[in-house]
Design a protein around this nucleic acid. Structure first.
Lengths: 196, 196, 196, 196
DNA sequence: AATGAATGAGAGTTCATTCAT
DNA sequence: CATGAATGAACTCTCATTCAT
């Protein structure tokens, strides 16, 4: 096989993931419609027909990115929640740690996060799914008496998502605040409230 | 004058606002790019060149909708915040009322809200602006001793926006919860926290 | 007849000629296609349907302007040429005067000139017509022995048109040179040539 | 490879230059605004998007044609003028030759000439540029005593352009007169004048 | 496998011209 | 007669996608 020959597996995979990465960045920066296939392939140094060798369509590659995000996020959330020992005397610390995990993931994957959490049509569903899982956990701990009984845990879960959503955009992704610090602030606010 | 007769002067204004309304709905439903002028004019029973009689471009009508939302929202927020007498013993009641106002506005203007709060590029700026105003008020009440001193009011303001943003989508606009009820839940959570 | 009534003849004529004037300026400044009816009526403070009361179409008003120019120019040229006494000992002076007349007309009617001499499809025909007339006169004077016999008078006539055409644009209409002065230079060049 | 087969690399260039040529003809025949992209591509047997593969816009291809004309003309004029030895006893012959060159170029490139010399907004600038160069040369020869001292060379240069401009349209491009013959007439007229 | 080149399908926009009042 | 409002008919341009080699 001469120099010009391309090995199938290796090179193909490399190209594929390069395209995924580049397109993630472009979608994150410009949104779905404002991102042109021509721009993606140019940045990836690939021809346009090559793109279609790896992905069926623009829609398809976008969906794949969304799926990757969703997958990783769900795994993370589930792990985070399921390992819940509840043993620790410091409930606050535990919760903070879990949120830190999630925020850290967002910070490490800013492009994917923008796509899956903000841009995609499925973002709503993803957040709802996440909210549901959080709600489950909150309910358990509510039953255990850790939380007030007169409070709607669905609202709390959705509120937490809202807070995370907003602070991720305004304080995390732009580097203003670190995951831990942010998690801390969130948890303290939600646990103890504002009232002096 | 039969059905087909057209009244004179006011007709233009009527059509203009009809187009505004229809396009608000379409943009809200499908987003900017997926909304075609052809669809708007069809729904409004108007020919395509007529559209350009009233608006310079697709971008222009969208921006006008954003501006209307921003305008109304800011007016509402400012009124709501500036009238702050703080006299009432029931701080909680006051805050709840203000948030109710905002949520009611969202509920009455679901299309505008989707556009200005979620779809527009300026949404971020609009929310930031709103957050800044809320922060101002929170700081005053913090100085007055109503709120804990060890809490970052910028984070609180942004969190409140996040909560509103999320619950508006998941509970308000789809009619699941009423403004007052929602405001109540939000305020109670933020004031007293989860901790039992 | 109340204040709002419009007398037919007087006002109508005024409007018509206002439209002619304004459109002449616009056509001269921007060319045919870049001139919009909407711009003309705006400048003339007239509504668009009113325009069509006085002129059948955009093409029609343009043609009318061309016709006016052609008419005036032809009259001028004919007068100029026909009165030719040839008596005067100063042939040069005579010719200079005639050309001055034409250039003066151009200078007084810059907009019409641009339209009829440069912009219109008929410009070619107009110039040819003018050239033909000039040629006639040149031939007579050639026969009379005033001009060299070995020269093609058709070429001379067209050359004169070319010179006038160009110098009108580059020196006359922008005010760089006065009609008389320009006519002088032209005549001296054409009569005596460059050769020292 | 049958008739329908497409060769590889060079094909693009071929199409590009075909489009250039066809559009030159169309622009020359109908002017800028009356020339539709749809007509160009039809004549070139190409789809409309293909056009945009090679040119950014209608304006762009037109400008490219203008630039080509300007480029070629300037090269020609400069070469023509710079080689000026002035040695030849026959100044007349030299000048005639130069003008013949230019007219020959016009005759060989009638479409480009119409575009660059008559249609483009830049035509004025192109002619002025050409006039300036001619003026330079005339001035030198005037200083050398070949030409009368009491004559404004700027006017002469512009007049020459005017003559060329006009005779090119009326005698050259329509095949009535050959470049050499025309140059001859022009030079004789300009050198020796009409006066018998 | 890879690519230069091509295109179907459609979008937004413009403007001369004309109703309907 | 005047006018606010409307529109038919085009036109330029874009882009995801796919041939043909």
């Amino acid at each position: 096989m001469g120099k010009r020959g391309r090995k199938k597996g290796a090179d193909g995979e490399k190209r594929r993931s390069l395209l995924l990465q580049v397109s993630a960045e472009e979608f994150a920066k410009n949104g779905y419609h404002e991102t042109k296939i021509s721009a993606i392939v140019q940045k990836a140094n690939v021809t346009q027909p090559s793109f279609y060798l790896y992905f069926q369509s623009k829609e398809a590659i976008f969906q794949e990115l969304v799926a990757i995000f969703q997958q990783k996020l769900m795994t993370l959330v589930q792990q985070s929640l399921l390992e819940s020992g509840l043993e620790k005397s410091t409930l606050e610390g535990e919760i903070t740690e879990r949120i830190t995990n999630i925020l850290s993931f967002f910070k490490e994957q800013p492009a994917l996060t923008k796509i899956g959490f903000y841009l995609a049509n499925e973002s709503e569903e993803i957040k709802s799914q996440m909210a549901r899982q959080i709600e489950q956990n909150l309910l358990i701990e509510q039953e255990n008496g850790y939380f007030r009984a007169d409070i709607n845990m669905h609202t709390v879960a959705e509120s937490l998502i809202g807070i995370i959503e907003r602070l991720t955009k305004t304080k995390l992704l732009n580097g203003v605040t670190k995951p831990e610090q942010l998690a801390n602030e969130i948890v303290r606010l939600l646990l103890y409230g504002l009232k002096s």
